[in-house]
């Protein structure tokens, strides 16, 4: 920058305020310094504990576990999204029976821990082995992987149904009436008028649901599925090396942060027409 330009910028800037060192700034600086020290300690620990044998033994396992986690979440989220549509419809329907059925489904899966639901399906359905063998479903329920997908799908369907319902009901009634007065069919109204507006509302909760799913999918490690958490537990029980858990934490944190910023980026992008 030339001197003249720099002078012009300096002239445009408001005068610099002398912040001084009030108590908040001292406390804040100390806290940030503590975080920095903690981060440096973590890096120093990982460098000091670096063990190439351990790393190369478990790195492929961690990658396989990561893939398992991601595919488990993706499959459950997609199936759950499909299942959430009839549930949300039931929740909003005027039919007493339908709406109380849907309410019961949502209440059950949101009111009990996912880990208990998973145990109920994986261990619990083993009680009905003869019956399940009779109808040929035993080979499905014998596998921890399929049980996990079933439990997660049902669980996320309950949460996603509430997100969908909330988003559709957040669209003002006038939108329905306006579309009806133009002679649009109800389904057309839903598809062309209501859903595009509802999805803007729903984007953030959907993003949160994906993050929650990735975090809570760690419980499948307890029913012997070797996802990222499962591989970590295995690695720890073989090596008793604490860094196995640290690495898992770093990977989970990176995944969640990428998703969170991705959702925010999409939100900024699709609400551009609403900004002034």
């Amino acid at each position: 920058m030339s001197t003249a330009a720099r002078e012009a910028v300096d002239l445009d800037l408001p005068p610099r305020v002398n912040r001084g060192w009030p108590r908040e700034r001292i406390v804040g600086t100390i806290l940030v310094a503590l975080w920095a020290v903690a981060g440096l300690c973590l890096v120093a620990y990982l460098v000091a504990a670096w063990n190439p044998e351990l790393f190369w033994r478990w790195a492929p396992a961690y990658l396989a576990g990561l893939w398992t986690t991601l595919s488990l979440c993706a499959i459950s989220l997609v199936l759950g999204a499909v299942l959430s549509v009839p549930v949300a419809y039931g929740r909003m329907s005027g039919n007493r029976l339908l709406s109380s059925l849907a309410y019961g489904f949502v209440y059950f899966f949101r009111g009990t821990p996912l880990i208990a639901q998973t145990f109920l399906i994986y261990y619990g359905l083993g009680s009905f082995r003869p019956q399940l063998e009779m109808v040929g479903l035993w080979s499905f329920f014998r596998e921890a992987w399929y049980c996990a997908i079933l439990a997660f799908t049902l669980n996320t369907a309950a949460y996603q149904a509430e997100i969908l319902r909330g988003a559709i009901q957040a669209v003002p009634r006038g939108q329905w009436e306006g579309a009806a007065s133009l002679g649009l069919h109800k389904l057309q109204t839903l598809w062309k008028v209501v859903l595009p507006q509802a999805l803007i509302v729903a984007l953030r909760p959907y993003g949160n649901e994906v993050v929650l799913m990735i975090k809570s999918s760690a419980v499948v490690a307890l029913i012997t599925v070797l996802d990222l958490m499962g591989q970590t537990r295995l690695a720890f029980s073989r090596s008793f090396d604490y860094q196995t858990y640290i690495w898992a934490g770093v990977i989970y944190l990176a995944m969640v942060e990428v998703l969170r910023h991705g959702t925010e980026w999409i939100e900024r992008r699709i609400t551009r027409h609403l900004k002034r």
């Binding site: 809570s216 760690a218 989970y252 944190l253 969640v256």
Partner: peptide, 11 residues
């Protein structure tokens, strides 16, 4: 908020 609760517990 980013770490899975189960992992926090083990950590």
């Amino acid at each position: 908020r980013g770490l899975p609760e189960l992992l926090t517990l083990f950590l």
